[in-house]
Design a protein around this nucleic acid. Structure first.
Lengths: 124, 124, 124, 124
DNA sequence: GTGGTCTAGACCACT
DNA sequence: GTGGTCTAGACCACA
């Protein structure tokens, strides 16, 4: 499915969340398709089922999937997501803050800009 | 001196570090000038002295300042400042993550891009 | 602080969430005030710290509180909450569905209405 | 017959139960009429036969239908239908919880009330 | 001290 | 089988 980087400082459940977001946004996992069960994925990744469940719960909160006890976890239709101004403002500030920190981490302003533009390119 | 955002999930010591980096890079604090003492700053910001201490250690480690026992902490010459790859990678991932979230907050990819580009414009 | 109903079918963490929502909405816990620490509350209620933390996480997600590692969990300003149309539509359908079920659970339509109106009265 | 919402967190068997209760109370299914067989309905709804079976058992327990082995499941006379206090309490709490959430979605109390009253109007 | 993450393993309702 | 909840207890970074 995907690989975890156990040496990373990013938490395991966050890596699982991000990997699935990527798979869903690229439609490698199309709407309606079923994610591996909590137990199945926990075996595949050799992590605790609770960790996988935490990731799935976060994905549901973010509107990427919906879960049904006894049936499984499924990719949601994209159409359900509507803009939430408060959430967007929070994200805007996070980016602004990180970008500001980047510019003053020993990089030239041009290098800082380049990093952000690169992210935009990659992510599309 | 500067403001902390106590509601942010960025740690306080990291905010202190980033603020000083910015002040030093912009030469608002020129080379050779003295930083507030740990006690003084901890009072000003209403945070634990340990937190300020940790920030100063990090600034010294990164080459922004040097401390002289009993006299204080001083801004180093610019030449010593080198980028910290780990810190930059962390910031890159924060931006990537927030940008990704932005695209899945109901915004079109174009709107998401526009928000980021706007930030770059404002911040310079 | 408040009592749990261990005989209830509502999960413990959900009860904790609802109790705090009530305390915050009535301003018994004003904006900026600190919630008990995870460990403290878990001792008070005789439940596992993880259960309390799950509740606190949910409260943060809903915008009622903000947490800061090493400092605590604090009641957020109300002003941060903006309407999210998708969320509201979901809730509207939940109520519609439950109300419909109520009307066909052996109650007269008048009794069903009375129950809902009573909830509105209680909750204000 | 009726539609299921597979993305809902309400369990499937409960949705089947509620739909039949509605059909029976409104006499869309008059007393004496025959419900689809378990197999037939499970095919129609694309759900597990066990799930339909459980719903039918619940309907019988609540007095809405009676089963005659080998012949099928039939709608009972209305007089047998009694309210189920536990089910009603569950629904009451669902409504209370959703209503409470509504008030903390950025709506004014008046707007929240208006939404609920509108549902009551529509549903009668 | 604080919250955050994780493991190990249990029990439950639902499919 | 599925997801959901909970306990017990560990380790971490941060204040």
């Amino acid at each position: 499915m995907f690989q975890l980087d156990l040496t990373s400082h990013r938490s395991i459940y966050q890596q699982v969340v991000d990997n699935f977001k990527e798979l869903i946004m690229t439609e490698a996992l199309p709407a309606g398709s079923r994610l591996p069960s909590v137990r199945e994925l926990s075996r595949l990744l050799s992590v605790n089922p609770n960790t996988v469940q935490k990731a799935y719960r976060e994905l549901e909160r973010a509107g990427f999937v919906h879960t049904a006890s006894g049936r499984g976890t499924f990719v949601s239709e994209k159409t359900k997501i509507l803009p939430d101004p408060a959430r967007i403002e929070t994200l805007r500030q996070e980016i602004r803050s990180a970008y500001s920190a980047l510019k003053y981490s020993g990089l030239s302003p041009e290098e800082a800009k380049a990093i952000v533009l690169e992210i935009i390119e990659e992510e599309g």
